[in-house]
Design a protein around this nucleic acid. Structure first.
Length: 422
RNA sequence: GGGGGAAUGUCCCGAGCGGCAAAGGGGGCGGACUGUAAAUCCGCUGGCUAAGCCUUCGUAGGUUCGAGUCCUACUUCCCCCA
């Protein structure tokens, strides 16, 4: 059995994951359910550390770990410090740059702050531990690895895996590194089981093959029965991949995306996604979600606000989330000037000298070039203090700074930035 | 090893008789309509100190008044034969 629909879990952990829509496949529901009920279940998920922040795409696995901890399990987020040093070859983009050890460490530290929002770390039985596979991969000796681990991999079997099979059928290049990547990933499972007793690896549905390879290796290398559980690939109701927005990726670190913008991301959820997202990205009880999901027409906006505030509170804290909600309310519902909108400072001398509108919008980060600013003006998309900009040679001067000492620049109806003198 | 293809707007896919800032999609952004939604329609989608200037078609040279387009070498990928 691999489908969650025809299984009734007894453990809190699996019940929560299944009823909230986190589960796509599992290697053995009954077995895992049993483990989750008897004793502390340790589980790990691998995360990418090529950027200094995770983005919303990683939120789903983080939530799975959080539910695990809530259900009395021990979550083990794993950072691929070792594997990123090889470079993930599964994308065919060869220009992927290799990161230095320092970069990886910096990213790791930054990413850890996100985990700390969702998981409690420490030395206790159910406290989370942040693992890095560099700890065991970098010291590996090739000959030893081949002898102890490599002999357990059946190339015959690896050749039947979808990821490999497809490439071979299409006669696409499959490099040796790539072929080995799954061996390392499988070995991670064994190592984490030995070091921390992890019995379960979770991940996105695209990781199924790799995770199952780990299961297999574990059996051959004398680990206890291991389990695999994957989550569905997340797309929006209209089929787009999650995590992209106007400004770029939806980062989880506040210094890369402000809580206000993060709140806005969730506020703009499509109708058809609201219920699903409430289940996946908030800890609200199911009854409450059912109530919100039943809202029709324009009322569903209330559900979106709740989603935005709850989701934002998880990573930026309740206070920041409520402030974002309030900022949005004042800005959108009252059309008022909310001083808590994201701010950008410009040197006072530049303002005194007269700041061109084009430059101002570029500085505010609302447009990427003066050329784009010109185009947006033609399209009627730029406003200064809510007044449409019609002249691209317009100048922002002292008089535009309201009594509050800021100028509100807007792109379209949704994106606002305050300019202040510094 | 031999033979034949391919590389295009720095998001992606893709056309391109020597006159090209380069067709067309997708995506994205803006406008209209709405509910800060979806769908639909319209516009935009190299940069700048902007009637002009600069930089782009794998890399480096060459032919030409003029090269994405022709020639040479190189790089990478694909196909066929061995």
């Amino acid at each position: 059995m691999t489908s969650p629909s025809d299984f009734t879990p007894k453990s809190d952990f699996l019940r929560a994951l299944i009823e909230r829509g986190f589960v796509h496949q599992c290697s053995d529901f009954e077995g895992l359910d049993e483990k989750a009920r008897s004793g502390t279940l340790s589980a790990y998920i691998g995360f990418d550390c090529t950027a200094p922040s995770l983005h919303v795409g990683s939120l789903l696995p983080i939530m799975m770990l959080a539910w695990l901890q809530r259900a009395g399990g021990k979550p083990l987020p794993l950072i691929g410090g070792g594997t990123t040093r090889v470079g993930d070859p599964s994308g065919k983009d060869e220009s992927r740059k290799l990161l230095t050890v320092e970069q990886i460490d910096a990213n790791k530290a930054s990413i850890r702050t996100v985990f700390e929002r969702f998981l409690s770390f420490g030395d206790g039985a159910t406290d989370a531990l942040l693992l890095d596979n560099a700890d065991w991969l970098t010291g590996l000796n090739y000959i030893d690895f081949l002898r102890d681990v490599g002999r357990h991999f059946s190339v015959n079997r690896m050749l039947t895996m979808d990821s490999v099979k497809l490439r071979l059928e299409r006669e696409h290049e499959l490099s040796f590194i790539e072929f080995n990547y799954m061996c390392l990933q499988a070995y991670d499972f064994v190592e984490i089981n030995r070091r921390h007793g992890a019995l379960l690896q979770m991940g996105g549905s695209d990781q199924w093959g790799n995770i199952v390879t780990g299961l297999d290796l574990g059996r051959r290398m004398g680990c206890p029965q291991l389990y695999a559980l994957t989550s569905p690939l997340l797309t929006t109701a209209s089929g787009a991949k999650m995590g992209k927005t106007a400004t770029g990726a939806v980062w989880l670190n506040a210094d890369m995306l402000s809580p206000y913008d993060y709140w806005q991301y969730w506020r703009n959820t499509e109708d058809g996604d609201v219920a699903r997202f409430l289940k996946l990205f908030t800890f609200l009880p199911m009854e409450e979600i059912a109530r919100l999901a039943a809202l029709q027409g324009a009322e569903i906006n209330d559900a979106k606000k709740t989603l935005a505030t709850e989701a934002t509170a998880l990573i930026h804290g309740r206070a920041a989330a409520e402030q974002a909600a309030e900022t949005a309310r004042a800005t959108f519902e009252e059309g008022a000037l909310a001083l808590s909108l994201p701010k950008v400072a410009v040197p006072a001398e530049e303002v005194a000298a007269g700041l061109g509108v084009l430059t101002a919008f570029v500085k505010a980060g609302l447009v990427s070039s003066t050329g784009e600013a010109r185009r947006q003006i033609k399209a009627g998309g730029l406003r200064v203090n809510d007044a449409p900009v019609t002249d691209e040679r317009g100048v922002i001067g002292e008089s535009d700074f309201a009594s509050e000492g800021v100028v509100k620049l807007s792109l379209g109806k949704k994106k606002h930035v305050l300019l202040e003198r510094a």
